[in-house]
Structures are given as C-alpha cells and as structure tokens.
Design a protein around this nucleic acid. Structure first.
Length: 517
DNA sequence: AAAGCACTCAACCGCAATCCC
DNA sequence: GGGGATTGCGGTTGAGTGCTT
C-alpha cells in the first residue's frame, strides 16, 4: 500500500525524471500552444522532433504532433458531434472497425481521438446497456458475408481442391486485416456467390459463428461505388433470410422495403439523435462467446456480457478485423470453432428467439390478411392499415422503452420492444435456460423451421432503412427509382423485374458518403 | 457537505509502417 | 538491403467535472 505522501513523492520524481530528460508531460499551457503554433507557421507540419530543438518547447515530437493535430491545427471543429456526424461515425465504424484515423479523414474538422472517444463512451455505454450498436443495414451486410463464407466453407469441404481461389476461414481470418482495403479480396465478390446460396433450402450449419471479417470496405464492382457490398448473388437474388445477431429478417423484408417506408430526416433529427435512434432497441441478453471476455483488455471490453459479441470491443461486428492483428492463438480467432461445437453461442439463441417471434408474428399478420404470394413471400406494397397500426404500436413501444429505462440492461426490453417491434409478439424470455437449446443442429432446424417467409416491417426497422435518405416525397421516390435501377444493373436484372423493390443497401445513401479508400 | 461514482476528454504509450541515409 | 529516425495509429490512462447518494 502506498501512502499519499509516497504517491506524491513518486509523482514528483516522475516529473523530475521527465524534466531531467528535457521533456515535459501533461496538459499543455497556452504558452506552449503559442510556441507550437508559431513553429508550425514558420516551418510547417512535420519534423516534430525538431520542434523541441528549434523552438525550445520541452515536448517530445509525438506530443507536439498530437497537440497540433488534435487541438491547434486550423479548421478543427469543436463541440459535440452533430447527429449527422454521429451517423457517419456509426456507418464508418461498421465498415472500418476501429480505424479512427480513416474515419477522421471522412469527417472534416474532427480528429481520430475525438471519434475514438465518442465511440468508446457514447456508443459503448449504449452497448453495455444492451442496445445494438449498429442499425440493421450494417448488420445485414455482415450476415450476407457470413452466408457467403458459410457456403464457401461448405464448398471447400466438399471440394477441397476445386476452388483454389477461395480462401479458407482461417486464412481469411489471418489475412483479414490487410484484406480490408484490398479490392482484390473483396469479401462479397459476386463471383463467389453460388446459386445454391439459400440457407432456407440447404442444410445450413452455423454460418453466423464467424464474427470475423464482417465489416470490410468493399471497393469493388458490387458496391455501386459505395464501398458497401450488396448482399446479392449474381443471380439477382438475395439470401432468403438475413440474420444479424439478435435480429433476423427475411431477405424480402430487408431488401424490399415498401416505397412508403422511407427515411424521414426531419423526424430523425427532431426526435432523437442518430445514436439514440439506433440504440432504441435492445439486444437479446445472452452469454457471449465463452472464454472470450477474459482475454480482452479492460478498455476494450464493456463489462456487460449480454449481447452476442458484446464481449468484443467493437460492438461485436467489426472486431475481427483487428483481432487478426493479434496472435492467431487469440481467443477471438477461436470463434470459428463454434461451428463444430455444440456449445451455445448466444447468438443462436437470439436467432431462434427471433425466428420464433417472426414466425408468430407472421401467423398473426397472416390472420390479418397480409398480402402474400403463393410462395408465402410477402408482396411488398403499401402497408395495410392493420400493418401500419401494428408498426406504429411497435414503434411506440420502442420509444417508450427507450424513454422508460429502455437502456437498462438485462431487462429484456429488447425482446419486448425491439424484437416485438420487429418480429414481435410473445418474445421468449431471455432468461430461459440455455440448455433448452442444447443441440446446435436441432437449433438450426428449429431456426429454419421457424423462419417466416414473410414479415411486415416495423416502423423501427423502416427508420433504419430510411437512412438511404429517401422520403416519400416525389423527389425521394424519384431517387428511389434511380437506386432501384442501379441495383438492378448491379444484379444484371432490370428494374422492371423487381417492382417495388428498394434495396436496403441501395447506393444512394452510401454514395453520398465520401470515398473511403 | 462530502464521498462515491460515472463520464468526458486530453494526453501518453507502445507498436507498426514508412522514410531516409 | 539494413538500420535508425520519424510518423501514424490505436489502446489506455488519468485529471477534471458533474451528478447522485
């Protein structure tokens, strides 16, 4: 135990030591700032180590550079992030992971440090509260990727020598960090899609268990220059379902949002910030990947063990990109083992619960005469009054939940609110023992059986998809059509073939983003 | 009023990449 | 090509502040 006196002494010695080395630490004074500004004016940025020599500033080069970059350089924006900036940060984080500098480059006047702090505080706080970090569309991207790799994995197992160009999970894991920015390694390259990619009709094994490589930059031909891949096959067909952590959607629901379901920027900004909007729903509290938590460093890991992957620093989604930086023996890289392991993933629970709810809701909605085609697919059109009612109620619940302590973790509000808003009725309590799902195969069968073929979209989900920047205004509709056409082009189909389809990953929104790479 | 706590933010540290000789 | 210097980046820490009990 160190007494206060000893601690003070120690601190003094530390300062003395630093001083003796000619370097000052700690907060910068106005005088120091002035010196540094003057120096940069004269000599320009760079060569930071010479600052000390030439200006007499008792700061190391690193410190000078940091001070300049974060506080002194011109055109720095101060103050809290605007909702738009928050939105961009979330999007970028979904794409890039903890690439703060890259994110900062997309946010003029903002520093990587600011963004990092923003994420680590505001976002993680919400994550700890059991709220999903990313809006659906980003999560969908993840799932599409997972599906693809699941399929590739299966193909490789079947024909280990047939596809030399496809990489194994492990190799992808190990290369993920570099692959992030390598167009040649586009993870959703349509070439790699198989026409058989349809988890509903295949014996699906747990494709979701690889949180790796999930958010990458996809600067290739399948992104409409958006940097974000469309989760589509070359056959113009989406996977039949999109499953992300705790939320599962039929692909139709995700990819084909009714024209009326467009983003309303005014509501968005008036009612809540982007952060609060996307945090408005909760995640099913389930155990994280066993053994994963303990190896994560303190600052990385919110102590909340509830959300799948929440043990992960980056909201569970973008983690792998960084994790590959660690040793291959890192616990995180062990995740794929779950594919062969019957241990409960937590995510599976969420999937099952979600699918069950989707199923229930489908039944309920079916009773309410939701239009469906003969295949049970939802005919995407203007929502019926009944649907609208339900959606509004769901949205209300979400809102109420977030107002009335919706952030409280572990209260299953997620199930009652978000999930109900999405899929809804009669959510299975999250506390239900995991041993009810003790078999992965059974779980998956159950999951697949429960997958509804059509599900109306709740208001909440629509809101997130409205991030495309569309409105129901004629202008918005016009742009929507444009995007449909773009999407059709990308799919090799015509817009006519896909009436009333709005691709959730439509390019408009992402095209409005500055280039990432 | 004071202690405890959570949160924010600035700054530091270590590592890796890049530059330069 | 090798090695040191420099720069960039991401993780972490700690001081300051405000709120709660």
């Amino acid at each position: 135990m160190i007494s206060n006196g000893e601690a003070a002494m120690e601190a003094a010695l530390t300062v003395q030591k630093a001083t003796s080395q000619g370097l000052k630490k700690g907060p910068w004074t106005a005088a120091e700032d002035a010196i540094l500004i003057e120096y940069v004016k004269k000599h320009g940025e760079g060569n930071w180590n010479s600052v000390q020599k030439n200006s007499g500033l008792m700061r190391c080069g690193k410190s000078c550079r940091l001070r300049w970059a974060n506080h002194l350089r011109p055109n720095l924006k101060k103050g809290s992030f605007t909702p738009e900036e928050e939105r961009i940060i979330i999007e970028l984080h979904a794409k890039l992971g903890n690439k703060w500098a890259r994110m900062a480059s997309q946010l003029p006047g903002r520093t990587d440090n600011e963004i990092k702090n923003f994420w680590n505080t505001r976002m993680k706080r919400r994550q700890r509260a059991g709220l999903p970090v990313y809006p659906q569309e980003y999560q969908e991207e993840t799932t599409a990727f997972r599906m693809q790799h699941h399929h590739q994995h299966q193909e490789e197992q079947k024909h280990p020598n047939n596809n030399p160009s496809s990489s194994s999970f492990s190799s992808l894991l190990s290369s993920s960090r570099k692959a992030s920015y390598n167009p040649s390694l586009t993870l959703l390259d349509p070439i790699n899609f198989s026409p058989a990619l349809d988890p509903l009709h295949n014996n699906l094994t747990p494709f979701y268990s690889n949180p790796a490589l999930q958010f990458k930059s996809f600067p290739d031909n399948n992104t409409n220059n958006s940097g974000l891949a469309l989760p589509m096959s070359p056959y113009g067909r989406l996977p039949s379902s999109i499953t992300v952590f705790n939320q599962t959607f039929p692909a139709q629901a995700i990819s084909m949002t009714p024209p009326s379901l467009h983003y309303n920027t005014a509501d968005f900004e008036t009612n809540m910030s982007f952060t609060s909007l996307i945090m408005g729903a909760q995640v099913e509290p389930v155990d994280p990947i066993p053994g994963l938590k303990s190896k994560l460093s303190s600052g990385q890991t919110p102590p909340r063990p509830n959300t799948p992957f929440s043990s992960n620093t980056r909201g569970g989604i973008c983690v792998r990109e960084e994790s590959s930086k660690n040793t291959d023996n890192d616990s995180e890289t062990a995740v794929p083992e779950m594919m062969h392991d019957n241990s409960n993933s937590g995510l599976l629970d969420a999937l099952l619960l979600e699918s069950q709810n989707l199923s229930r809701k489908e039944k309920l909605i079916g009773e309410n005469s939701v239009a469906s085609d003969h295949k049970g697919k939802r005919v995407v059109d203007e929502p019926t009054e009944e649907e609208e009612k339900m959606e509004k109620e769901a949205a209300k619940r979400v809102k109420l939940s977030s107002i009335n302590g919706g952030e409280a973790s572990g209260e299953n509000n997620c199930c009652d609110d978000l999930s109900s808003s999405q899929s809804s009725i009669g959510m299975k309590p999250s506390e239900e023992p995991m041993d009810e799902m003790n078999s992965m195969d059974d779980d998956l069968l159950s999951l697949l059986d429960n997958f509804p073929t059509s599900t109306p979209l709740p208001e909440w989900y629509r809101s997130t998809n409205m991030a495309n920047g569309f409105s129901s205004s004629p202008a918005g509709e016009g742009r929507r059509i444009e995007v449909e056409q773009e999407a059709s082009l990308a799919r090799g189909t015509t817009a006519d073939e896909t009436p009333n389809v709005e691709w959730a990953f439509g390019s408009s929104y992402w095209n409005n983003m500055p280039g990432i790479c």
